[in-house]
Design a protein around this nucleic acid. Structure first.
Length: 638
RNA sequence: GCUGGCGUAGCUCAAUAGGUAGAGCAGCUGACUUGUAAUCAGCAGGUUGCGGGUUCAAUUCCUGUCGCCAGCUCCA
């Protein structure tokens, strides 16, 4: 038997016998490492710890401390769940696929006779626990496609048969634990006993292979962690996130509502929500003006012919609202670019005019499918902080970089984490190859210049151009697309936009379509969850509330309220005949940053005593001092 | 749009194996004049989302519709 050389991540080399298992190599390093290893990477490929080494290689042992390790763990937990389900429901249920996902895993089952219910979760969980306790070895087998197809056909697992039939491989791998066998690439844990903490969380429908034309499967979601403590921490975090749900806080803070009779996905902004939104919009206008944008406004409806010119009618008419008056058809705008194009066309443009940056807080309506609506995060009527930049090809790079900086500045103000993605040409698209390449490379170079990491989504672009998407992370760690930067070489063509160059010739301007926060509705929803309703002072719809101790101070309290209001502070007052503690409690629940207490002492001294929602009380101060304090605190943000 | 679940007072939730609904909070009235997260008492509040069907009787069962929730698909 020959010796082979195994290189470990620390650079050290081990000489071992050919045919040795990964587990044995780990054990030769330490018993602890051997028992902690759940898988390994051999020359970068994930394998089981039971796999053997037959040539010189690089070996990295994978433990539960790594993402790869957790992935293997959760994938094995998915098999454990499928095993338990097959044990309990046998021939009624067919297995399909069950991958690991962030924080857990799911498994899709098919059955035309059995409908899973959450009441069965406990039963499945305890069967899983029994199977884990039995510590069944998880063994890998390889066989030819044909024999695997035959095996699963005999077991009545037609979905597995379909999967194998679509695999290009000559041989496929199976994993067996006790009676249960599943088609799987692996790797897996060495035995079921390694699985210590899991919980079934929810039940949902999912299409076979994610295609809505296919059969609907029953998906069971679950979470799994290396130990019970981590599982509990995760479940606690989910609970905390539920408390921050913007739909719940939106009602509790009286920011907005929806109404069945008004229609689904249409936000009704209450006074405090509308004020919050107004503050955001004022912020937007200011930030755009100082970056050289022009504020413009277009109409809510435009003639349908114009949507045909733009290509939107062709591509998106199922999602547009239309209206007809005097035998004239109008489309309710699903986006704001058309009016901006018309502004550009309203006179002859010179290269000296460019770049033009038209900004509009534009309200649009899109008929989103009913099932996708979700609080403020996915609605049918919304307002974008939309702008269209028209520039020369030479200016494109600089403009895109400017927008990226803008996005970064704004995200910093709100303290958001985000991810960036670039999306390239989709199948359903218009425009020439040359244009697409030029636009894509402009976006790519701006991203590279920013020095921030980004992902590439091939074929995910808009029909009229490639784009950069920026996704925020909310309290539930869900990603929400907010900012987007989209190049567009086609709309200027369709509208025959031009400018006169230094050469006296007509040229086509380049167009960039971009939003910074995206839909204000969605952004407010994300903000509510981000801050758990505790908006920073500059954003808070109500910044302070004046509360009196008894009726005796009512007149002075009114005077102070008026004074602060005139100074531009968003203040209200609670002069009801209630105990101070009661009024404080209410203001606290409303998450108002400052409560201004006024009793006999304050009246006498001409002061007010602020209490912050954190519970801290400040010393009594003159109203002027409080105004200064608010102004200083607001300036901290931007 | 699809699959599954759900819809009772402003909110959170009870109740009915089919016999026309109840509590807390909020609201209103009164008393209390109160110093940093709930003063007490009383009153009022519902065609049980909406339409149709079965039934002596429907909030409960069936059906349609609207809406909500979870997920899938989608998101110019």
């Amino acid at each position: 038997m020959e010796a082979i050389r195994v290189e470990l991540p620390d650079g050290s080399i081990r000489e071992v016998a050919e045919g040795i298992s990964v587990f044995e190599v780990a054990r030769s390093i330490s018993e602890g490492l051997a028992s902690q290893s759940v898988a390994a990477k051999v020359d970068g490929h994930l394998v089981d710890v039971s796999s053997t080494l037959d040539r010189d290689c690089r070996l990295e042992l994978i433990t539960l401390n790594s993402e790869d390790g957790l992935d293997v763990y959760r994938h094995s937990a998915a098999h454990l769940m499928a095993h338990a389900v097959k044990d309990l429901f046998g021939g009624e249920v067919q297995v399909t696929i069950g991958p690991s996902i962030e924080n857990g895993f799911y498994y899709d089952f098919y059955s035309d006779t059995h409908k899973f219910t959450p009441e069965e979760f406990e039963k499945i969980e305890s069967r899983m626990a029994e199977l884990a306790k039995a510590d069944l070895p998880i063994e890998r087998e390889e066989m030819t496609r044909d024999s695997a197809i035959e095996l699963f056909r005999q077991m009545g697992e037609s979905y597995k048969v379909k999967l194998i039939e679509d695999l290009p491989n000559e041989t496929v791998s199976l994993y067996r634990q006790g009676e249960f066998v599943d088609l799987c690439r692996g790797p897996h844990l060495p035995s079921t006993g390694k699985i210590k903490a899991f919980k079934l969380t929810s039940l949902a429908g999912a299409y076979w292979r994610g295609d809505e034309k296919n059969a609907m499967l029953q998906r069971i979601y679950a979470t799994a962690f290396p130990d019970k403590k981590q599982l509990k921490a995760y479940l606690d975090k989910l609970e905390e996130a539920r408390k921050r749900d913007h739909r719940k806080l939106g009602r509790e803070l009286d920011l907005f509502s929806f109404n069945d009779e008004a229609g689904a996905g249409l936000v009704i902004w209450h006074p405090k929500g509308a004020l919050l939104r107004t503050v955001l919009e004022d912020f937007e206008r200011k930030e755009h003006l100082r970056r050289g944008y022009d504020i413009v406004m277009g109409p809510q409806i435009l003639r349908t012919d114009l949507w045909k010119t733009s290509g939107h009618y062709e591509n998106y008419r199922e999602n547009m609202y239309f209206t007809e008056v005097d035998e004239q058809s109008y489309g309710i705008k699903p986006m704001n670019c058309l009016a901006h194009m018309l502004i550009y066309k309203s006179k002859k443009r010179s290269y000296r005019d460019l770049p033009l940056r038209f900004f509009e807080l534009g309200t649009v309506h899109r008929h989103e499918k009913s099932g996708v609506l979700h609080g403020l995060l996915r609605v049918r009527g919304f307002t974008q902080d939309d702008a269209h930049i028209l520039c020369t090809p030479d200016q494109l790079d600089g403009e895109i970089k400017g927008v990226l900086r803008f996005v970064q500045d704004v995200m910093k103000i709100f303290g958001f984490e985000y991810e960036m993605e670039i999306s390239t040409r989709p199948e359903k698209s218009i425009g020439s190859d040359v244009d697409w390449e030029r636009a894509t490379s402009a976006l790519m170079s701006a991203l590279k210049d920013s020095g921030l990491p980004f992902e590439v989504n091939e074929g995910d672009g808009a029909f009229y151009g490639p784009k950069i998407d920026i996704k925020l992370k909310d309290a539930l760690d869900r990603r929400w697309q907010c900012a987007t930067i989209q190049c567009d070489f086609t709309l200027p063509d369709r509208f025959d936009l031009s400018y006169v160059g230094p050469d006296g010739e007509k040229h086509r301007p380049v167009m960039v379509h971009r939003v910074i926060v995206g839909a204000i509705e969605r952004f407010v929803g994300v903000l509510i969850e981000h801050y758990a309703g505790n908006f920073p002072l500059w954003l808070s719809p109500v910044q302070a509330r004046v509360v009196n101790v008894t009726d005796r101070q009512a007149d002075y309290a009114r005077e102070v309220t008026q004074l602060l209001r005139e100074a531009g502070i968003r203040v209200d007052s609670d002069l009801r005949n209630e105990k101070l503690g009661y009024k404080i409690r209410e203001a606290q629940i409303e998450k108002i940053p400052y409560m201004l207490v006024i009793g006999d002492k304050e009246v006498e001294e001409g002061t007010l005593s602020p209490r912050h929602r954190s519970g801290d009380s400040l010393n009594a101060m003159k109203p002027d001092e409080f105004i200064q304090l608010v102004q200083d605190e607001c300036r901290l943000y931007h």
